[in-house]
């Protein structure tokens, strides 16, 4: 399999990259880790006239503590963040271990996975669950796009064709909060049939805050906002979680495909949501 011919550019600076995007617009595709784009090129599902390979731009492969969370450069690899997260960030580590396999994570970038916006991918859901954002640069300036406005539909984000995601901002967990991350896939490392990322913070034995992001359940990852609101102030019991999950699963419109029916996905979403909330609440209670 061969990609269709394209014009190849490997700019050495962000300015040079966004100038190329300004010139070529929707005819250009940004190549970072390539773990999603190269298959699309090989199958000729994508036939961009121009490839803007950002891998030679120096200084974009950082992961640092900033903005009460993490600032992740556009070229930080998934494996890099996974290693970083081994020390004290089990939520990130668990989510990352579900992204493909080690050989995919060697090359695949955090920003690239988010920009690709596969509705069954883990990192967009993680960003959504943590209320993160991306910084998008174009030749006319820079803007921050919150996760809630970012994921529009299947492989579609609010990032314009002339913009480049230069940084992903991933806030930390709220103080004292616990997390849960679960997915069902046919094989470890595959895209999820359904997955759930959840965060729960407790106060005086009640739920102070709950956040749930569901993925693999529709055209884009979604926050279960009404269920989150219903959970606030409740006691963290199985019954409470089950009621919230019923509410959330009922509003989902998952696709049916070769791997699972819509009804099955809805049912798995319900089950995983209960378990992820229970795990998050258990961790929030903590060892002491």
């Amino acid at each position: 399999m061969k990609p269709a011919p394209f014009e190849y550019h490997d700019p050495r600076s962000i300015d040079e990259a966004v100038a190329l995007l300004a010139r070529h617009g929707a005819d250009a595709k940004v190549l970072a880790g390539g773990q999603s784009l190269i298959p699309l090129l090989a199958f000729r599902l994508a036939r961009p006239a121009v490839i803007v390979d950002i891998n030679r731009i120096p200084g974009l492969d950082y992961v640092r503590n900033e903005h009460e969370g993490l600032a992740i450069g556009a070229l930080a690899r998934q494996r890099q963040l996974e290693r970083w997260a081994l020390d004290g960030s089990p939520f990130l580590c668990t989510a990352l271990r579900h992204v493909g396999h080690a050989a995919i994570r060697t090359r695949g970038t955090i920003a690239g996975s988010i920009a690709h916006a596969d509705p069954a991918a883990e990192l967009p859901a993680l960003l959504l669950c943590l209320d993160g954002s991306v910084m998008a640069r174009s030749s006319s300036g820079q803007r921050e796009i919150p996760a809630r406005e970012l994921f529009v539909s299947h492989l579609t984000t609010a990032v314009r064709a002339d913009e480049l995601i230069t940084e992903v901002r991933l806030p930390g967990l709220p103080d004292g909060a616990g997390w849960g991350f679960l997915e069902v896939a046919r094989r470890h490392g595959d895209f999820a049939l359904v997955g759930v990322a959840a965060v729960v913070a407790l106060r005086n034995g009640r739920i102070a805050q709950a956040r749930v992001a569901l993925f693999g359940c529709g055209a884009a990852p979604v926050r279960a906002t009404p269920a989150e609101q219903a959970l606030a102030g409740q006691a963290p019991t199985r019954g409470t979680f089950a009621a919230a999950a019923r509410e959330a699963a009922g509003t989902l419109t998952p696709d049916a495909d070769l791997h699972a029916s819509a009804e099955y996905r809805r049912s798995v979403a319900h089950t995983l949501m209960v378990r992820a909330l229970a795990a998050a609440s258990e961790r929030a209670r903590g060892p002491g």
């Binding site: 190849y8 490997d10 298959p39 995919i104 060697t106």
Partner: peptide, 11 residues
């Protein structure tokens, strides 16, 4: 580090 040779351009 392990990487898929089919998912990289030679360049």
């Amino acid at each position: 580090a392990p990487a898929r040779a089919c998912l990289m351009l030679a360049v």
